[in-house]
């Protein structure tokens, strides 16, 4: 049973209204753009990576509550993390968004608020856009990212 309250949890609503780390980063050495044109979700992620650590990260763009909140939560979660840790986190988030019965790992923290998305298959692409865009930026892949 899909429950709206499970999708639009307080954390999601809050991060949609007041996205954290929003805006352009002054100094960055990685960036990538994600675009889901069918939805109209678009974001640009800027990252400052130093000795395999994400020193700073910000994003700008326009999108639905799920994509905005997901990007906001992601920036909070990955800031200060090593690239290996981020890769691990990506896998955990990916599983949480796509695998129906997988338990939500305890170390996901606030990101676990997105676990309701998997009950809304049409919205998984909204939540995952920022993560794929982050991946492309870290891989220095210049091609625009889409999850549609």
């Amino acid at each position: 049973m899909m429950d709206l309250a499970d999708l639009y949890r307080d954390v999601i609503v809050d991060h949609n209204k007041k996205p954290r780390n929003f805006g352009r980063l002054e100094q960055f050495n990685r960036d990538s753009e994600g675009n889901n044109p069918l939805c109209g979700d678009r974001l640009h992620i800027f990252i400052d990576v130093e000795s395999d650590l994400i020193r700073d990260i910000r994003f700008e763009g326009k999108g639905c509550a799920i994509s905005t909140a997901s990007a906001s939560l992601m920036t909070e979660a990955v800031k200060g993390k090593s690239l290996a840790e981020v890769r691990h986190l990506f896998g955990e988030v990916h599983d949480m968004l796509t695998r129906h019965d997988a338990p939500v790992p305890a170390d996901l923290g606030k990101l676990a608020a997105l676990s309701g998305v998997r009950e809304f298959p049409a919205r998984v692409k909204c939540a995952s856009l920022c993560w794929h865009t982050l991946n492309a930026a870290l891989a220095r892949d210049a091609a625009p990212v889409t999850t549609e």
């Binding site: 709206l4 999708l7 639009y8 209204k17 939805c39 109209g40 979700d41 999108g63 639905c64 509550a65 799920i66 905005t68 809304f120 049409a122 919205r123 909204c126």
Partner: peptide, 11 residues
Amino acid sequence: EGIHPHDLGTI
């Protein structure tokens, strides 16, 4: 205002 059309569609 303040609500993306896709969120409206889902709700």
